[in-house]
Computed example of a mutant assay.
Amino acid sequence: MSYLTRKITLMAAVIMVLCALCFAPVTAQTGVSPDVKTISTSATGEVLATPDRADVYLGVQTENADVMTAQQENAQIMNKVVDAILATGVPKENIQTTGYSVYPVYDQSSNLFGQKVKYYQVTNTVQVTLTDVGMTGAVIDAAIAAGANQVQNIAFSLSPEKEQSLRNEVLTEAVTRTRADADAVAAALGVTIIGVQDATVGSYYPPVMYRSVNAGAADMSAAVPTPVEPGQVTVSATVSVNYLIN
Rank of each mutant, 00 (worst) to 15 (best):
M1R: 09
M1H: 14
Y3T: 03
T5Q: 15
T5C: 05
T5I: 13
T9N: 04
M11F: 12
A13V: 14
A13Q: 06
V17H: 05
L18M: 13
L18V: 12
L18A: 14
A20G: 12
C22D: 06
A24R: 13
T27I: 12
A28L: 11
A28P: 01
Q29H: 10
V32S: 09
V32C: 01
K37G: 04
T38I: 13
T38W: 05
I39K: 06
S42C: 05
T44G: 03
G45A: 05
E46G: 00
L48H: 11
A49F: 00
P51W: 05
D52C: 03
A54M: 12
V56S: 12
Y57R: 14
G59W: 11
G59L: 12
V60E: 14
Q61G: 01
N64V: 02
N64L: 05
D66H: 04
V67A: 14
M68S: 10
M68H: 06
Q72E: 15
Q72R: 14
A75W: 05
Q76L: 03
Q76Y: 02
V81I: 11
V82Y: 09
V82G: 04
L86R: 15
A87P: 06
G89C: 10
K92L: 02
E93Q: 11
N94D: 15
Q96D: 04
T97Q: 15
T97N: 14
T98P: 02
T98E: 15
T98S: 07
D107R: 11
Q108M: 04
Q108P: 01
Q108G: 02
S109R: 11
S110R: 10
G114Y: 12
Q115K: 15
V117D: 14
V117N: 12
K118P: 01
K118Y: 07
Y119H: 13
V122I: 10
T125F: 00
V126R: 14
Q127C: 03
T129F: 04
T131F: 02
T131W: 04
D132L: 01
D132P: 01
G134P: 01
M135D: 15
M135S: 14
G137A: 04
D141K: 15
A143C: 08
G147T: 07
A148P: 08
N149V: 02
Q150C: 00
Q150G: 00
Q152H: 09
Q152R: 14
Q152V: 01
N153H: 13
L158T: 06
S159K: 13
P160Y: 08
S165D: 14
S165I: 02
L171N: 03
T172A: 12
T176Q: 15
T178Y: 04
A180I: 08
A182D: 04
D183Q: 14
A187L: 08
A188G: 09
T192S: 15
I193S: 09
G195C: 05
V196E: 15
A199P: 05
A199C: 01
S203W: 02
Y204I: 06
Y205Q: 14
P206V: 07
P206Q: 13
Y210S: 03
Y210C: 00
R211C: 01
S212I: 00
N214A: 05
N214F: 03
A215E: 15
A217I: 07
A217M: 07
D219N: 02
M220C: 02
A223I: 06
A223T: 07
V224I: 04
T226R: 13
T226K: 06
V228Q: 10
P230R: 07
Q232S: 10
Q232Y: 02
V233N: 08
V239I: 10
S240N: 09
V241S: 03
N242R: 12
Y243H: 03
I245N: 13
